[in-house]
Computed example of a mutant assay.
Amino acid sequence: MKKILFLFLLFTKVAFAQSHFPVDTTYTVKSVYDKVKKDHPYISYVPTRSYETVNQKKEIVYKKIKDRELHLDAYYNKTKKQNPAIVIIHGGGWRSGNKSQMETFAIEMASKGYSCFNIEFRLSMEAPYPAAIFDVKNAIQYIKKNARKFNVDTTKVAVLGCSSGGQMASLIGTTNGKKEFEDSKTVSKFSSKVNAIVDVDGTLAFKHRESVEGKVAGLWLGGSYEEIPSIWEQAAPLNQADKNTPPILFICSSIPRFHAGRDDMIAILNKYGIYSEIQTIPNSPHSFWFLNPWFDETIKYTTHFLDKIFK
Rank of each mutant, 00 (worst) to 15 (best):
D39Q: 07
D242K: 08
F190S: 11
F117D: 12
G97Q: 00
G218W: 00
Q234M: 15
R95M: 13
S284H: 11
R257P: 01
F105M: 11
G223P: 06
Y225W: 08
K207S: 13
P285R: 12
D201C: 06
T48Y: 09
L123V: 12
K308W: 11
R209K: 15
G92W: 12
A241V: 07
P282H: 03
Q234L: 15
Y76M: 07
K185A: 10
L291H: 00
Y272I: 08
I43G: 08
K145P: 02
G223D: 00
Q101G: 06
V198I: 15
R49S: 03
K64Q: 09
N118A: 13
I140C: 10
G113I: 09
L70D: 01
Y114K: 01
Y33S: 08
M125L: 14
S192Y: 01
K178Q: 14
D135P: 00
F8S: 04
F290C: 11
L70Y: 11
D263K: 14
I60T: 09
T104I: 07
V216R: 08
E103S: 07
L219S: 07
I107R: 03
Q82Y: 12
I251T: 12
T154R: 10
K149R: 05
K64S: 10
S230E: 15
P256S: 10
E103H: 04
E226F: 13
S124K: 09
K215M: 13
Y129R: 01
T155E: 13
S115L: 09
G161I: 00
I197L: 05
R257V: 09
V152M: 04
V200Y: 06
S184T: 02
G173M: 02
V32I: 13
V36C: 04
F310A: 00
E120W: 06
L70A: 11
K271E: 07
K35P: 04
Y142G: 03
I65M: 08
G273N: 15
E233L: 09
P282R: 01
G161A: 06
S230D: 14
G92V: 10
C116L: 03
S44W: 05
F150M: 02
K38S: 06
L171P: 11
V216L: 13
N176S: 04
K2T: 00
D307W: 04
H286P: 05
I228C: 13
Y51W: 09
S170C: 03
A147M: 03
F250N: 08
E103T: 02
N244R: 00
E120L: 07
R68D: 01
D39R: 09
E120G: 01
S254Q: 02
V198G: 05
S184D: 13
A267E: 10
F305D: 05
A17S: 11
Y129S: 13
K80I: 10
F181W: 14
E227G: 05
T303W: 07
N176F: 12
L269G: 07
K308T: 14
V212L: 14
H20V: 01
Y129G: 07
P41F: 06
Y75F: 15
S100G: 00
T302G: 04
K78N: 06
N151S: 07
F288P: 02
G223S: 04
K112S: 06
